[in-house]
Structures are given as structure tokens and as C-alpha cells.
Amino acid sequence: MKQLFFVAVGIVIGFAAAHRIANTPRGARFFADVDARTKAFTGAVADGYRSREAELRTDG
């Protein structure tokens, strides 16, 4: 139970820190860059999934 408490406190501190950092111009650029990279990665994964699914449908 004690470990769960410390995990929850760590999460709250992390969110608070991220919020304060995001309010600075440099932090906003950082989070915008992270967001763009995440969207590019998830888009590539989705494209790969659809491509592989199409291959399996034509081969079967």
C-alpha cells in the first residue's frame, strides 16, 4: 500500500511539473515536438498494420 501511495504521489508531481514546463515557450515547443513525433509514429504503425492486413487478405 505504501508503494502505491508513492507511485500516486510521483504521478501527481510529474503532471504538475509537466504543466509548469508546458507554460514556458521552450517547454511548449518541446511538448509540441513530442506530440508531432508521437503522431508520426502512430501513423506509421497504423499504415503498416493496414498494409499487412491487405497483404494477408489478398494471399488468403
Rank of each mutant, 00 (worst) to 15 (best):
V9C: 10
V9E: 10
V9S: 10
V9W: 05
G10A: 02
G10Y: 03
G10H: 03
G10K: 01
I11H: 04
I11E: 09
I11N: 07
I11G: 06
I11F: 05
V12N: 01
V12H: 00
V12Q: 02
V12A: 10
I13H: 04
I13E: 03
I13F: 09
I13D: 03
G14Q: 01
G14R: 01
G14D: 03
G14P: 03
F15E: 05
F15C: 04
F15M: 05
F15A: 04
A16L: 13
A16R: 06
A17P: 01
A17Q: 02
H19K: 10
H19E: 14
R20Q: 11
R20F: 13
I21D: 00
I21Y: 02
I21K: 02
I21C: 02
I21E: 00
I21S: 00
I21N: 00
A22C: 05
A22H: 13
N23G: 10
N23S: 08
T24S: 07
T24M: 02
T24Y: 01
T24A: 04
T24N: 04
T24I: 02
P25C: 02
P25T: 08
R26K: 15
R26S: 14
R26I: 14
R26V: 14
R26E: 15
R26N: 10
R26T: 15
G27P: 01
G27E: 01
G27M: 00
G27F: 00
A28F: 10
A28M: 09
A28P: 01
A28Q: 14
R29H: 10
R29Q: 14
R29C: 03
R29K: 15
F30D: 06
F30R: 04
F30P: 11
F30C: 09
F31S: 07
F31D: 06
F31M: 05
F31P: 03
F31T: 07
A32I: 04
A32P: 06
A32Q: 13
A32H: 07
D33E: 12
D33I: 05
V34N: 03
V34H: 03
V34E: 05
V34R: 06
D35H: 14
D35S: 14
D35E: 13
D35R: 13
A36N: 08
R37T: 13
R37H: 15
R37Q: 15
T38D: 12
T38V: 09
T38L: 13
K39A: 13
K39M: 13
K39I: 09
K39E: 15
K39P: 05
K39L: 12
A40E: 15
A40Q: 14
A40R: 09
F41N: 08
F41C: 08
F41H: 13
T42R: 09
T42P: 00
T42A: 01
G43P: 00
G43Y: 02
A44V: 01
A44M: 09
A44D: 13
A44G: 12
A46G: 04
A46M: 08
A46F: 12
A46Y: 12
D47R: 15
D47L: 11
D47S: 12
D47I: 06
D47W: 13
G48C: 04
G48I: 02
G48E: 02
G48Q: 04
G48F: 01
Y49Q: 08
Y49S: 07
Y49M: 11
Y49E: 10
Y49F: 09
R50K: 14
R50Q: 12
R50T: 07
R50V: 08
S51Q: 09
S51L: 09
S51H: 11
R52V: 10
R52A: 14
R52W: 14
